[in-house]
C-alpha cells in the first residue's frame, strides 16, 4: 500500500476502524438494537499498539509499555461486562475515579518499590487526576455519541506530538494510529451519529491511552506537564459550545460537528505549541 511504515500503520488502523465499526453497526447493532460497534474503539487501540511496537507483548507483561496493552485489553473486557450491569452509570463513574489511580500505581510500581518521594507522589496525583478527568468527562458526553469520539480522537492527536517531544517514538506512533482508528469510527457518525460511545471504548481505548500517558509521566518523565494540562482542556470544549449557545445558530448536524472539532482542536493546538516552546524537538539523529 505504501513504502512508509508510519503511514502504513496509520492507514491500516483507519481502515480497520472504519470497516469493523461499519460491519458491526450494519450487521449487528441495526438488527438487534445493540451497541457492539462501539467495541471497535477498544479494538483499534490494541491494533495500534501491535503496529506501533511490532509485537504482541509478553504475558505477564514486563515493563510499563507492555502493561498498557493488557490494561487496554482488560478494560475492553470489563467494559463489555459493565454494559450489562443494571447500575452501569454508577459503576463507570466509580471506575473513572478509582481505576486511573490503580493504573498510575501499577505503571509507577518499579519506582514506588525503590522509594517514595514528593516528586513521584506529585506525578502520581497528576496521572490520577488526568485519567479521572478524561474518563469522567468522556462518559458525561455520551448522550451525543459523536462528541466523545471526536474529543478522544483530538486528545490522541494532540498527545502524539507531546510524546514525540518527550522522545518517545513508540507512544507517538501508538497515539497517532489510535487517533486514525477513532477517525475511521467517527466517519460513520458524520453527519448522523450512529456509533454509540459505551463502556468498552472508554475502558479499553481511552484507558489504554491514559496508561500510555502514565508511562511517559511516571517512568520516563518525559512529557511536558504544561502541554498535558492544556491538552486536557479538550474535555471542556463542548461545554463552551453549550454555554455560548453556538449549536442553536448552526444550520445542521454536519456544521455542528465541524465546529465542535475545530473548537476541541484549539486546546490541542495550544498544548502542542506550548510543548514546542518548553521542549523543542530534538535535531534528527
Amino acid at each position: 500500500m505504501t513504502g512508509n511504515p508510519v503511514l502504513f500503520d496509520i492507514l491500516a488502523v483507519l481502515a480497520a476502524g472504519f470497516t469493523l465499526a461499519g460491519v458491526l453497526y450494519w450487521t449487528v447493532d441495526r438488527r438487534v438494537g445493540s451497541h457492539y460497534a462501539a467495541i471497535t474503539g477498544g479494538l483499534v487501540f490494541l491494533l495500534a499498539f501491535y503496529l506501533a511496537y511490532d509485537r504482541l507483548p509478553s504475558f505477564p507483561p514486563r515493563g510499563s509499555t507492555n502493561k498498557v496493552f493488557y490494561l487496554s485489553l482488560a478494560g475492553l473486557i470489563a467494559g463489555l461486562v459493565v454494559e450489562r450491569l443494571p447500575h452501569r452509570d454508577r459503576v463507570v463513574k466509580a471506575a473513572a475515579v478509582l481505576v486511573p489511580l490503580a493504573v498510575a500505581v501499577w505503571i509507577a510500581w518499579p519506582r514506588l518499590a525503590r522509594g517514595i518521594d514528593a516528586q513521584l507522589l506529585t506525578l502520581l496525583a497528576i496521572g490520577w487526576m488526568a485519567g479521572t478527568l478524561l474518563l469522567w468527562r468522556l462518559w458525561d458526553m455520551r448522550a451525543s455519541p459523536e462528541v466523545p469520539w471526536i474529543v478522544l480522537l483530538v486528545f490522541a492527536l494532540g498527545l502524539a506530538p507531546l510524546t514525540q517531544l518527550g522522545a518517545s517514538v513508540g507512544t507517538m506512533m501508538l497515539a497517532l494510529a489510535f487517533a486514525a482508528g477513532l477517525g475511521g469510527i467517527a466517519l460513520w457518525n458524520f453527519p448522523t451519529p450512529r456509533i454509540a460511545f459505551t463502556a468498552p471504548p472508554l475502558l479499553g481505548g481511552a484507558l489504554g491511552l491514559i496508561g500510555a500517558t502514565d508511562t511517559l509521566l511516571l517512568i520516563s518523565q518525559k512529557i511536558n506537564l504544561v502541554g498535558l494540562g492544556v491538552l486536557l482542556l479538550v474535555v471542556f470544549a463542548n461545554r463552551f459550545l453549550t454555554i455560548a449557545k453556538v449549536q442553536a445558530r448552526l444550520p445542521g448536524p454536519a456544521s455542528t460537528q465541524v465546529v465542535l472539532t475545530a473548537v476541541v482542536a484549539i486546546p490541542a493546538a495550544i498544548a502542542v505549541a506550548t510543548a514546542f516552546v518548553f521542549s523543542p524537538p530534538a535535531t534528527p539523529y
Binding site: 515493563g63 509499555t65 518499579p110 519506582r111 522522545a167 518517545s168 517514538v169 508511562t215 520516563s220 518525559k222
Partner: peptide
C-alpha cells in the same frame, strides 16, 4: 531516547 521505554527502559 535509548534510556526511555522505547529501548533500554533504564528506569524499570
Amino acid at each position: 531516547h535509548l534510556r526511555s521505554p522505547d529501548f533500554f527502559n533504564a528506569v524499570e
